[in-house]
């Protein structure tokens, strides 16, 4: 039981990490970015390549992956979202163009890395097993949880206290007014994508480190859960996404524990569906979208 709670927390922290980048873009720009899963996957492959080819240690690998993700995010914004801005169907078209961008990115990964999953070098990250109060946890799980918490806290600080964060909140409130007040909306938009995609890429590399390998389907496997997490947390709410990620992780683990693992795949969606029907703003909907 306690073991299952721990399992749920670790699984949930990955969900949350995937979802905060997702929800950041939605909260500030109202874009549902369906290329996020592809960037997540790209981050995983990039991490592996950096480790294999350049022998980059873990502490240097993650920042490098974040930088690669950020660059991808800017490219994504330039090619798939900026050309649509101002159009009647901007949000809907953005949905489709981000699907297209995601498809292109996955195809590029396919061309570069082939069909088979890629692995981190053996012994790249020492995986020790600890037993704490009867609960078995691995070092990777601890690192994942710590990194996820650190990134989320950092992001929350950035959005609430930094000049960039203030500009982001202004754009979220009203892009037109923000522009009048001298905020460079184009820069903030690009910055938001860079931040979101950087986080997504790190999340991908982290999951790959957990699994020891990455395939092209890595992002797709978590994308649907990601939807559930961001809605459950209230679209655009960072803290909501974190909490919802953990809630879903726990719900899945407990379903396996109490019920039957055949229903594990159903839990996230059943919870999501119920929440949408009963409380469309999400469980943490009182955290207003604009406060991000």
């Amino acid at each position: 039981m306690v073991q299952q709670l721990a399992n749920g927390v670790f699984a949930g922290s990955i969900y949350a990490l995937f979802a905060i980048g997702f929800t950041l873009v939605f909260g500030i720009l109202r874009h549902l970015n369906l290329a996020h899963a592809a960037i997540f996957t790209a981050g995983a492959f990039a991490g592996i390549e950096l480790a294999v080819r350049f022998d980059l240690p873990v502490w240097a690998m993650f920042p490098a992956v974040a930088a690669i993700g950020a660059v991808l995010g800017v490219v994504l914004e330039r090619t798939a979202f900026r050309p649509l801005s101002g159009r009647d169907d901007e949000h809907f078209a953005g949905l489709i163009s981000s699907i297209a961008f995601g498809g292109v990115l996955i195809a590029v990964l396919h061309a570069r890395y082939g069909t088979e999953p890629k692995s981190f070098p053996q012994e790249y990250f020492p995986n020790r097993l600890y037993e704490i109060a009867g609960v078995r946890v691995t070092l990777t799980q601890i690192v994942t949880l710590a990194l996820a918490l650190a990134l989320m806290l950092g992001l929350a600080w950035l959005v609430s206290s930094s000049p960039m964060g203030r500009a982001m909140r202004a754009v979220a409130e009203n892009p037109g007014a923000a522009r009048v007040l001298g905020v460079n909306v184009g820069l903030v938009t690009a910055g938001t994508y860079a931040l979101s995609s950087g986080l997504g890429a790190v999340a991908g590399a982290l999951l790959a480190l957990n699994l020891g390998q990455a395939g092209r389907g890595l992002g797709a496997s978590i994308e649907l859960i990601g939807f559930a997490v961001i809605i459950l947390g209230g679209l655009g709410s960072l803290w909501g996404a974190m909490a919802a990620g953990l809630v879903l992780g726990l719900a899945e683990a407990l379903t396996v524990h109490w019920l039957d693992s055949t229903w594990k795949g159903m839990v996230a969606f059943a919870v999501l569906f119920a929440v949408l029907v009963l409380r469309p703003r999400g469980l943490f909907g009182h955290v207003k979208v604009r406060e991000v």
Partner: peptide, 17 residues
Amino acid sequence: GWIHPLVTGLLLLAVIV
């Protein structure tokens, strides 16, 4: 194998833009 998704993705992007 990667050419088909690449071409489809680029065409889709071109159409929507």
